[in-house]
Structure formats: structure tokens, C-alpha cells
Design a protein around this nucleic acid. Structure first.
Length: 113
DNA sequence: TACGTGACAAGAG
DNA sequence: TCTCTTGCCACGT
């Protein structure tokens, strides 16, 4: 299968595998893809992917658990509401139990190669 | 064709 | 402990 030819596509694949009620970080995805230093690209990928309905971009936050990408969603609290709807507690744009809900693709997913 | 931008992360000072 | 700088790479203008 060649669903993940480009770095972008790989980001999409990983993002789609984020379990319900769980969250991960840009860096974690980047690291899983073997490009830990390219976390910015993950954010850029999200920017392009959030247009796709099958990409749960709201489950991806920065390493501090901050909803830095909320402004890219419609309205001001759509991203927060989506997460709260999944049982994620948020306060001031930050996920409270971030460490508990953190989903690490490096551990949960099998190696890409 | 070339340069600037971007939802980040980590190291160094 | 906090702030600044650098690295990375694809897309848009």
C-alpha cells in the first residue's frame, strides 16, 4: 500500500489512528515518523488536514498540552468542545490530565518499517 | 524560480 | 528557571 508516500500522508495516517478520548503531540507524531525535529511539519500537515473530516486534528496538541491550533477550527471553542465531548478536561486552552490521556504512537503503534 | 511562512521542539546561554 | 536561537521541510505567493 502506498497510502503514506509523503511525510504529509504519514502524518494523516497516524492522526487517524489516535484513539477516541486520547491525545498526542506534534512532536510525538514527528518522532514516530523518524523526523523528530520536524514537528513544525506536523503542524503544517494538520493545517492542511483539518479540512478533511476524517482527520481528528483536535486530538493533536503541542508538548505542553496547549490547544495551540484551536484558532484553525471554526469558532473559538470548537476544538475544546470536541475534546471535552470525548472526556478530555480542558482549562484555559490546556489539557489538565495531559499525561494520562497522552497517546504515544511510538508505543501504541508498530514501527513503520 | 526563490523566499517567507508555519497548529513545534529541544538545546544553549 | 526563563528566553532566545536553531533545525526541519512542504506549501503558498
Amino acid at each position: 500500500m502506498s497510502e503514506s508516500d509523503s511525510f504529509f500522508e504519514k502524518v494523516y495516517v497516524v492522526a487517524r489512528k489516535i484513539p477516541y478520548g486520547r491525545i498526542t503531540s506534534y512532536g510525538a507524531i514527528a518522532e514516530y515518523l523518524g523526523a523528530k525535529k520536524s514537528a513544525r511539519m506536523v503542524g503544517w500537515a494538520m493545517n492542511a488536514s483539518h479540512r478533511k473530516e476524517d482527520i481528528p486534528a483536535h486530538r493533536v496538541v503541542n508538548r505542553k498540552g496547549l490547544l495551540t491550533g484551536k484558532h484553525h477550527f471554526e469558532g473559538t471553542n470548537l476544538m475544546q468542545q470536541l475534546l471535552e465531548n470525548e472526556g478530555v478536561q480542558i482549562k484555559e486552552n490546556q489539557i489538565i490530565n495531559f499525561e494520562e490521556l497522552f497517546w504515544n504512537p511510538n508505543l501504541e503503534l508498530k514501527p513503520l518499517y
